[in-house]
Design a protein around this nucleic acid. Structure first.
Length: 552
RNA sequence: GUGCUCGUAGCUCAGUCGGAUAGAGCGAUAGCCUCCUAAGCUGUAGGCCACAGGUUCGAUUCCUGUCGGGCACACCA
């Protein structure tokens, strides 16, 4: 928020004049209780010892100096143990309306990300079956994080990594092949780890219809053909589901292509050159222990195949080689034990695992129906797919639900609840606030009330109630909130903010009539206010990939 | 067993880079539409922020331990 920046500059100059140094840990924040002013600073408590005085004494000296330094400050009080409670002038806050009008859909964006080249990898589910609801949560979080970070000034690209070189995928080919045999009346023995979903049978049937001679192929050929076909079908399905869910990746990155392009060799060479590898028991090992892992890891197995970890290292190495300097992976929380070895790999590449690499963990989604759990497992074939859930509850409700909780904690997703139009399902609460404001604006237009072509501070003087200022203050904090959410990779801050903000708008609506036949200046001021507040809700929902309807 | 993570109102969850009287929704309960969308608003009740120590002006927040959930511990992906 520019208010914080402005106050910090003013306080810094005062502190400097006193011959004191500004501590890095000093904070300036909006206090929880608005009775404590617009912003509270703890600087006097931090510096009292150094200034050889008590906090309240120092605070009052700073307070005395502040109004002369900063014209936007209306009043400043010393409170509690030595807080400085600062209140800005109404005009300072009214300016927010003009700022929002000027910036429109871009309001809230910032440059805090400094154009950092960032690659967000998310979903990356093996194309061995349709996406289920857990993938949906990862998709919603990844996509929203992308939108957020772009708005915050990061230079973001996105990728979906396909594990198309491993055992799971070979198993997919085998599963379809067996079903094709079964459909043709041949007896089959179902192996363990077999993919049992009915979609496997559908694919097998489809293949037989297109090529009745399918089963004349050899075992190996047949499985390969089945694999290729199934992989294509399922991938296309996943892409369609994601598209429907308003999620798109800049690139689908194939694991196979890493091997083919020599990227694996490059990555291994880099590790070897830095002295991180050794051979033992006929396998190639990566010494991750000195880099913080709890045991060393195998790269090339004694049978000559690469481990999953090996190609993942190569993939991340390749990301850096392509010029990205900040890698964000979005993983299921059950992979959290995988983080130390990945950090070790990042360190071995000569990068800083603290700064150049982050993992966002997505916890389990418990799919419920009226409080009763619906089990899901791709292999057992009893999953509930993302597509089914979206069809049932809609994209807006599903996305908002996924984004309204910390991604690292488990989420109960009750189909009945998410369909309800109540506060258990806050997406409607936020959307309704937007629609209501739009209704007022429409009604104003019907009555021939129009906002002036170029709005100025003079038109906003009637914004003088506490509720006016509270809304303006909240709206002014929007960009700051988005920036913090982006930096901390916490998408749920946005939905929390929107719920708060929508609550304020609903209260405002109930308390203050906007269209006042007897008072045109106030009507104009309030219309201008509401229009800009609707813009903020719209921009916030846009970050979440949720629509902002004008009527409901 | 080891590591990671979580424990906040009856329920579902925010908050915490250490700040003032710990918040929201649901549920409970009492009210509000001759007036811009009641999918809304207003009030009341409800808390040893798991427990015990430590660090300091100040701890729900940081550290240690205990108890209790979840997850992970492959030459699987």
């Amino acid at each position: 928020m520019h208010a914080i920046d402005q106050l910090e500059r003013s306080l810094k100059s005062i502190v400097a004049d006193m011959g004191l140094e500004w501590p890095a840990k000093a904070s300036i924040d909006a206090p929880k209780d608005s009775k404590h002013g617009d912003l509270a600073a703890n600087i006097a408590m931090m510096l009292a010892k150094e200034a050889k005085t008590n906090p309240r004494e120092l605070a009052s000296r700073i307070a005395a100096a502040l109004p002369a330094v900063d014209a936007a400050v209306q009043s400043v009080e010393v409170a509690g143990p030595g807080f400085l409670n600062v209140t800005f002038t109404p005009d300072f806050w009214r300016q927010t309306v003009l700022d929002i009008n000027a910036q429109g859909n871009a309001y809230g964006s910032s440059t805090i990300g400094q154009g950092r080249r960032t690659l967000i990898e998310y979903v990356s589910a093996n194309p061995t079956g349709p996406l289920h609801i857990g993938h949906g949560r990862g998709a919603a979080v990844g996509d929203t994080l992308t939108r957020l970070m772009r708005a915050a000034g990061f230079d973001v690209s996105t990728e979906y990594y396909i594990n198309d070189a491993g055992r799971q995928m070979r198993l997919l080919g085998l599963s379809v092949w067996m079903r094709a045999k079964e459909l043709s009346g041949q007896p089959i023995e179902i192996p363990t780890d077999f993919y049992r979903g009915s979609y496997i049978i559908d694919i097998a049937r489809e293949m037989l219809e297109k090529n009745p001679n399918l089963l004349s192929l050899s075992e190996q050929e047949g499985q390969d053909v089945c694999y290729d076909y199934a992989m294509k079908q399922i991938s296309d399905g996943i892409k369609a589901d994601l598209h429907e869910f308003r999620v798109g990746h800049d690139r689908w990155f194939s694991e196979k292509s890493l091997v083919d392009s020599g990227a694996v060799k490059d990555a291994f060479a880099a590790l070897k050159a830095a002295g991180h590898t050794y051979e033992k028991d006929n396998a190639l090992w990566f010494a991750t222990t000195p880099l913080g892992d709890d045991k060393d890891r195998v790269l090339t197995k004694s049978d000559g195949y690469l481990t999953y970890f090996a190609s993942d290292i190569a993939y991340h190495h390749d990301k850096f080689e392509r010029g990205f300097d900040y890698l964000i992976d979005i993983w299921g929380a059950d992979h959290h034990g995988y983080i130390p070895r990945m950090r070790a790999a990042i360190a071995a590449m000569g990068r800083n695992p603290e700064k150049d690499f982050d993992v966002v963990l997505i916890q389990l989604v418990n799919l419920l129906q009226n409080g009763q759990p619906i089990s899901m497992s791709t292999r057992a074939g009893t999953f509930e797919t993302l597509a089914d859930v979206v069809k049932e509850v809609g994209v807006d409700a599903a996305r908002f639900m996924f984004l309204s909780r910390k991604s690292d904690s488990t989420l109960d997703f009750d189909l009945e609840l998410v369909k309800q139009r109540s506060m258990d399902n806050p997406v409607y609460y936020v959307q309704y606030a937007h629609a209501r404001v739009c209704a007022v604006l429409r009604r104003a237009a019907e009555r021939g009330i129009a906002l002036p072509q170029s709005l100025t501070m003079a038109h906003l003087q009637a914004l003088d109630c506490p509720e006016d200022i509270a809304l303006l203050r909240k709206a002014a904090a929007f960009a700051d909130m988005l920036g913090q959410a982006a930096l901390s990779l916490s998408v749920h801050h946005v939905s929390r903010y929107l719920m708060d903000f929508a609550g304020m708008l609903h209260s405002y609506y109930a308390k203050h009539q906007v269209l006042l036949p007897e008072d045109t200046p106030r009507t104009i001021a309030r219309l201008a206010l509401l229009q800009s507040m609707a813009q903020v809700v719209h921009n916030g929902l846009d970050m979440l990939g949720v629509s902002a309807p004008e009527t409901m």
